[in-house]
Nucleic acid binder design. Structure first.
Lengths: 196, 196
DNA sequence: GTCATTATCCTAATATTGTTAGTTTATGGG
DNA sequence: CCCATAAACTAACAATATTAGGATAATGAC
């Protein structure tokens, strides 16, 4: 019997497809082995275990997202860049729900430091340098924006918005315009007792 | 041999504890059966299956969260109420990570309509009536706030903030003050091309 | 208080997934 | 062509979920 020609890379690639089509939680070694017409145990020559496979998908997801962000914000600045950053997150979540979920899979610190996550962080900092924020406030603002992007995408994925008026796209646009205004006027909204 | 005295309610109650202590994903029928010193199959007299149990926990979580929100915002208005609403979400996520996760478990539409989720929605509307927003804009604002509460809590739970300066509590406070300011000035941040 | 009913709990069996150990074999380098 | 190696396999075991059917403790009717 000829060999299947498995590879860690091919496995992760296939895992990405499974995750996007059936959900990250439905990603299973058994499903993969069936897809390659190979016995389940054979996969262990290429990945350490299920956690290793999922970590691989997570790193792939972070890299992919970082790529898209870098591409989207190249040559943009200010509100333009902010909107691009936001749209990349939302579109990524809609087009690749499995990867979007995978991006939040817990991986070990060493891998995380070298992952696309670090690039994402740098991109966010770069964009927010276009707004009048102190160093600390920039971090606060990044956390605020990141939380919003994540939360909105998750709620939209879960269908939490789909059974109520008005249009979700409008909510997204208005929120982004509002957040842009917020960043421009950040300092004025902080009471003096909290300043510095 | 005497009976264990199982009940759907007691099972869900125990499941809540397991979820909070070991994570919602670690919630398993087998673990529950061990806890009650009963055979696994015996549980099926009280819950339809694992999904049914998890749905029960999800409904419990929504009800609990709605209770806390109702209590926290009673007698408050404006920014005061907004901060109370926000803090309830964040504290709930920290104190009951299992329940917080469970609250996003997919349940069927009929159950959802009668759940604490509806009460939560009403509470949010009530609070935002303290800000000068049109009916539609109130919905947009609720989605923005809900996204932020969810996203921030998830990222904090996942430890995404823990390895970077400055303090997470400060990010939370500043973001809330900023959002309060945003709500007060909502209309001015929408470009005329998007208005109505 | 006895007895019939019933719901509770059990045993047994099956399917799916993950994992490890040890064996066979395809494949490419010498 | 041989053979070292890595790829794939077989075999076995452990968890979990689920269903079917049997035994029995609890409960209530009389």
């Amino acid at each position: 019997m000829p060999r299947a020609g498995l590879t860690r890379a091919r496995l992760i690639e296939a895992a990405v497809k499974v995750a996007d089509e059936h959900g990250f939680d439905a990603l299973t070694l058994a499903a993969l082995s069936r897809q390659f017409d190979v016995k389940l145990a054979s996969l262990y020559a290429h990945v350490k275990n299920l956690d290793d496979l999922k970590s691989g998908v997570a790193l792939y997801a972070l890299a992919e997202l970082a790529d898209r962000v870098d591409e989207a914000i190249a040559g943009r600045a200010g509100a333009d860049a902010l909107f691009a950053l936001a749209d990349v997150h939302r579109r990524f979540a809609r087009e690749h729900p499995g990867l979007f979920t995978a991006a939040r899979y817990r991986i070990d610190a060493a891998d995380a430091a070298a992952s696309g996550g670090a690039r994402l962080s740098r991109a966010s900092h770069a964009i927010l340098r276009g707004y009048p924020l102190s160093e600390d406030d920039r971090v606060h603002a990044i956390r605020l924006l990141g939380s919003f992007f994540l939360g909105f995408s998750l709620l939209e994925m879960a269908g939490s918005f789909s059974h109520s008026q008005p249009d979700t796209d409008t909510s997204w646009l208005r929120s982004l315009h509002a957040l842009d205004g917020l960043l421009k006027a950040w300092a004025t909204n902080i009471p003096s007792t909290l300043a510095n």
